[in-house]
Nucleic acid binder design. Structure first.
Lengths: 201, 201
DNA sequence: CGTCTATTTGAATGTACTCAAAAGCGGTGG
DNA sequence: CCACCGCTTTTGAGTACATTCAAATAGACG
């Protein structure tokens, strides 16, 4: 039913023929996860690349002190998973948790390799979205190094308003590399600034 | 002369025929840079993807306060450039500086697009190395969030001993997201720890 | 409605930074 | 061959941004 969303996603980079699209569909499966269930888990091989058609997830890892760190947040129309594990087909380090009822269209590693051969455009598609993801990771590193917590939050809010509404501040704070308490303090500070500005007008 | 190094680099992921290899070579050019010259610069479109055959570089950006932040360090047998600018062919934000005499084998964006069509294996190669680079960026974000400055330095030293010898501590500190002074203090602290441990044996 | 989790707030603390100055190192020219 | 210059590294003192811990409040879900 949500196939159209996936088709539109592909169409941003490649023009698939009806045959190619049907071939891809025939190798795809629908999966669904309840709130709190895991799409990937530490120590397990991530066998699927997952396109979210409904719900939201967070991908995180747990450091040696038991602390969770959110690597990625994702909502409808995004691809999600433990990418390093998927491409190497080795056990991964990341958990991907459904933050609510989640539905995906997923392609297994083996099917994807087949599809790369049968539908070369798909190889192009994944090269392009990986390059995009790489570029945005680079921007994120850049952002984490050059900017303080408040600026990082403002940038995030501007870039992903849809995520800010869908996902709890706790996870957003972790994604932004700060404590939940500190994010709360930042938001207060920003409110005060805006109010002060209005008062002085 | 250093073509063999590039061929070996390709061979890590794809098996090229002699014809394919010659085709790639015919679209490649050798470039060289003196110490201090720029391979990419802010505001310019990065027209080439560059494979380093000699020397070392750093890729950095300058934030709004005029501070430099090293995104990437690279030596012989690595690919370098302003990736986001290259893939979009839009003006970039990054400087790539030759830290000493540097030689590269470079392929222009246009030639590369042609080669993707003529040599599908090349599209596979770049998909694979981009995925690798993506995965390593992910690890870097993970590392920056979960670990303090000392642990990040120790991890770096273990992972890239060749780079630690080739490139000044100042740039390494920047790459690791800390001030040069602080890296110096960390190194002293590590020495003291080792000495103390020896003394107590 | 009650419980469980998320968010807010405050106080004390710490990690890493800035600034300034001294010491080390490498290259260049007299 | 040595002296000087510029750049990198080291060291110390003071500071700031962000954290941890604890407690109170608010919100979500059954």
């Amino acid at each position: 039913m949500e196939d159209a969303l996936l088709f539109a996603n592909f169409s941003r980079y490649v023009a698939l023929t009806e045959n190619e699209w049907q071939l891809i569909l025939s190798k795809s499966i629908a999966r669904s996860f309840k709130r709190g269930e895991y799409i990937t888990a530490e120590g397990e091989v991530n066998r699927y690349t997952n396109f979210i058609t409904k719900g939201s997830c967070r991908t995180y890892y747990i450091d040696e002190n038991g602390q969770e760190h959110v690597i990625q947040l994702a909502i409808r129309d995004w691809w999600i998973g433990d990418f390093p594990s998927f491409i190497t087909q080795q056990p991964g380090q990341l958990y991907t948790e459904a933050l609510e009822e989640v539905e995906t269209i997923s392609i297994s590693f083996d099917h994807l390799q087949q599809l790369y051969s049968d539908v070369p455009k798909l190889e192009r598609f994944f090269r392009l979205i990986t390059q995009q993801a790489y570029a945005s990771f680079q921007k994120r590193i850049l952002l984490n190094m050059g900017f303080d917590a408040e600026q990082r939050y403002l940038d995030f809010r501007e870039k992903y308003p849809a995520i800010e509404n869908a996902i709890s501040q706790k996870h957003i704070a972790s994604y932004l590399g700060m404590s939940a308490e500190f994010l709360s303090k930042i938001k207060k500070r920003i409110h005060l600034k805006l109010k002060t500005r209005k008062d002085s007008l």
